Amino acid sequence: MTLNESVPAALPVVERPINDVVVDVPTGRRARRGDDGMLGLGLLAGPANVIMQLARPAVGYGVLESRVESGRVDRHPIKRARTTFTYLAVSTNGTPEQQKAFRRAVNGAHAQVFSTDESPVKYHAFDKDLQLWVGACLYKGVVDVHRLFVGEMDEETADRVYVQGRALATMLQVPESMWPADREAFDRYWAASLDEVHIDDTVREYLYPIAASRLRGLRLPGPLQRRNEELALLITTGFLPQRFRDEMRLPWGPDHQRRFDRLMKVLRVANTVSPKFVRQFPFNLLLKDVDRRIRTGRPLV
């Protein structure tokens, strides 16, 4: 199957190319969808997106060996999540002042992330190719979330979201010329980049608690902990394309897909009937938090 061929509807959303043929969206619904921005339900896809990013060995070991203690997702998951989601909000919907301040803060943290002679792979957080990969993963996550919880985009909306998504990479060191020219070019980039995906035992062990949403220092009573991890693994694995499931050795079959689809359907209905400020929470508040931190001199990352 080529990248431009339509994918059967039975396939999960996350398996579909970005440039897949979109359905015609009625005009009335199109106007409603145009104001959705970042959806709060996208937080559910966060662990899967982290796995996708870290599936490139240089990114995985860059995070695993990071000297930035406060940014380690395994030790400070809530703070790391706040930083990542704020980056999403600022890069796509922030003001130029917010973007400039956040870029400076992230660059300060990235300056401390580079490999040593003992590192299994060579990496540096200022590597433009690695930053492009991370931005591409974030953009793909935005599209997958939109398809699941809002619905298909018409061509105009898909192109607009693609232009906005470019900032997920270019807000840092990635020049605009490196971002694929259009959605079809993005699919070619994504397919080629999958050849560089590999999760070894060390990174897999690091990522599994993230997939299961285990919070350091917090453990529920036995049965509740198991149920919570089962649900988290279902959601995380459901948002992962099959290549990443295989690398993580996470099982997936028809029963898993049906359970995932049922859960997403319930959440989609809840999202549809929610008011705009609820749909966009917490991204709307994170942008206000950036202004507050800039004003008071508090760290942004």
Score class of each variant (00 low, 15 high):
93 N>T: 15
109 A>N: 06
87 Y>V: 09
119 S>C: 00
99 Q>Y: 01
93 N>I: 05
113 V>D: 13
102 F>L: 15
116 T>V: 10
90 V>L: 11
100 K>W: 08
98 Q>S: 02
93 N>P: 01
94 G>P: 12
96 P>R: 01
86 T>Y: 05
117 D>A: 08
119 S>K: 09
107 N>W: 05
114 F>M: 10
97 E>S: 12
83 T>E: 05
116 T>D: 14
97 E>L: 10
115 S>C: 08
117 D>Q: 11
106 V>S: 08
106 V>N: 06
105 A>M: 08
109 A>Q: 11
94 G>L: 06
117 D>T: 14
112 Q>W: 04
101 A>R: 03
83 T>D: 06
101 A>Q: 04
111 A>H: 14
110 H>I: 11
89 A>W: 10
104 R>S: 09
92 T>V: 08
107 N>A: 00
91 S>P: 03
92 T>Q: 14
105 A>R: 12
108 G>S: 01
87 Y>I: 05
97 E>I: 13
92 T>L: 07
87 Y>M: 10
111 A>S: 14
105 A>L: 07
95 T>N: 04
105 A>N: 13
108 G>R: 13
88 L>S: 10
85 F>Y: 03
101 A>E: 03
106 V>E: 12
119 S>V: 08
119 S>L: 05
119 S>W: 04
87 Y>T: 13
96 P>H: 01
98 Q>H: 00
113 V>G: 09
96 P>L: 00
96 P>I: 06
116 T>I: 14
91 S>F: 00
103 R>Q: 04
107 N>R: 10
89 A>Y: 07
107 N>H: 07
95 T>K: 01
111 A>E: 15
115 S>R: 12
97 E>C: 03
93 N>D: 13
84 T>Q: 09
119 S>I: 09
90 V>S: 06
98 Q>P: 01
94 G>R: 07
118 E>R: 12
107 N>Y: 03
96 P>G: 00
114 F>V: 12
103 R>Y: 00
90 V>Y: 09
101 A>M: 02
93 N>W: 12
102 F>R: 04
100 K>L: 08
92 T>E: 13
117 D>R: 12
117 D>N: 11
97 E>A: 13
110 H>Q: 15
95 T>Q: 02
113 V>A: 07
100 K>S: 13
95 T>H: 03
115 S>G: 09
110 H>A: 06
91 S>C: 03
98 Q>R: 04
95 T>R: 03
99 Q>F: 00
84 T>N: 14
99 Q>P: 02
114 F>S: 15
99 Q>I: 11
84 T>P: 05
114 F>L: 13
94 G>W: 06
114 F>A: 08
96 P>V: 05
119 S>H: 03
102 F>M: 15
100 K>V: 10
112 Q>V: 05
96 P>C: 02
105 A>P: 09
93 N>H: 14
103 R>K: 06
89 A>F: 03
108 G>H: 05
86 T>C: 01
103 R>D: 03
90 V>G: 08
111 A>Y: 14
108 G>W: 06
98 Q>Y: 01
102 F>N: 07
114 F>H: 15
94 G>Q: 05
